[in-house]
Computed example of a mutant assay.
Amino acid sequence: MESPITTRDGLRLWTQTFGSRRDPAVLLVMGGTVPGIVWPDELCRLLAADGYFVVRYDHRDTGRSGKSRDEYDLSVPASDAAEVITGLGLGRAHVVGQSFGGMVAQLLALERPGLVRSLVLLSSSPDANGDVSRPPRTGLPGPRPAMVDRVARLSASPPRGPEELLAAAVDGWRVLVGPAVPFDRAYWEDLVRRVMARGELPDTSGRHLTALDRTPPLTGRLPALDVPTLVVHGEQDPVFPPEHGEELRRVIPRARLWRIAGMGHIFPPHWSPLIRELIVDHLRRSHPSDHTGRRPRPA
């Protein structure tokens, strides 16, 4: 079901839900510059089948959500996430953030703790820049050569026309998935076509990268977090090397870290059952009283 939310500054955010509103809510916060449909449909359906009310949405400046007039820092998308939770009447939600979305989730939990029941941080960081040439300010390692080289190729030869844009985007997903697992080109081509069909020109999603550059490191604030947290990080992540996940585990009280051999920055779609298993195990550990299996509904 699609349910648009209007933010306090008047932007409409596209949201989509899976499952029953009677179940505990799971908010999926996608990474930067891409819409919420990058969360695999299979993962959303698996979590709903486990007894969760799943919400994915388009950040401002992506997909079917509105476009901002000005640049901003991460506090704005964090406020948007809060408005999705309150606008849909979710109460307190389990929040799963991917990459940029993981940083949004961290800031949401810091600034609106009453809205967050638990955190899962996938391929994320406490300190990141949108400009890959700028090293993290806290001394964490920057992106690996595969990612830096891809950005350099795009800068030297920007794609022109729909087919070049498609090829460049698929190449980008290939880099993010990483070299250690099979790359399902047909899946990613179809996803890119769907993403392109949802967007409007001009593309303002680059404001997400600027938001990273405008946001100070979260490292010093994260010891104040008081929410069950699972960090999931790929050992082949070309954007945030594993040290970023290790740092999240170190600075967030009682956080647990699960490193996945062979995973890059984004998990391939056929790993949805594994990611679902990690998420559900964490939610069950965090809140055993939640009904996490389907049970008969009253007639």
Rank of each mutant, 00 (worst) to 15 (best):
V239W: 00
P268I: 07
S65Y: 09
L115P: 01
T219P: 01
N129P: 00
Q16S: 12
V175P: 12
A186T: 12
V227Y: 00
V151P: 01
V26S: 06
G66L: 12
A261R: 15
L47W: 04
A224E: 14
T62V: 14
E247S: 02
R174N: 09
T210Q: 12
Q236N: 14
D70W: 02
A197L: 01
R276W: 03
D171V: 07
F18C: 02
R21F: 03
P298N: 09
G293I: 15
V132A: 05
G161A: 07
V239F: 00
D70L: 12
V151K: 11
V232P: 01
R69F: 03
R185E: 15
W271P: 01
P217F: 00
G91M: 13
Y52Q: 10
G89L: 06
L11W: 10
A93C: 12
R297W: 03
D23E: 15
W173M: 13
P162M: 03
G66V: 08
P179F: 05
I260A: 07
S272K: 07
V120I: 08
A197D: 08
L201G: 02
L201E: 13
R297T: 10
S289M: 04
D290T: 00
G36C: 07
R250C: 04
P158T: 04
W173K: 13
L230S: 06
L257D: 05
D23N: 15
P202D: 04
V54K: 05
P216C: 00
L225N: 02
R259F: 06
D9Q: 11
Y57I: 08
P113E: 10
H233I: 11
V239P: 01
G66N: 11
G102H: 02
P126E: 13
P217Q: 00
R254T: 10
R12E: 15
R134C: 02
G142H: 13
A109Q: 06
P268H: 09
R69M: 01
A109R: 06
L154P: 00
L121H: 02
A146C: 10
P159I: 14
L115V: 09
S286K: 07
P228Q: 11
M103D: 06
C44V: 01
R134A: 03
S3T: 14
V192S: 05
E247H: 08
G142W: 08
E235K: 14
R256L: 08
R56W: 04
V227T: 14
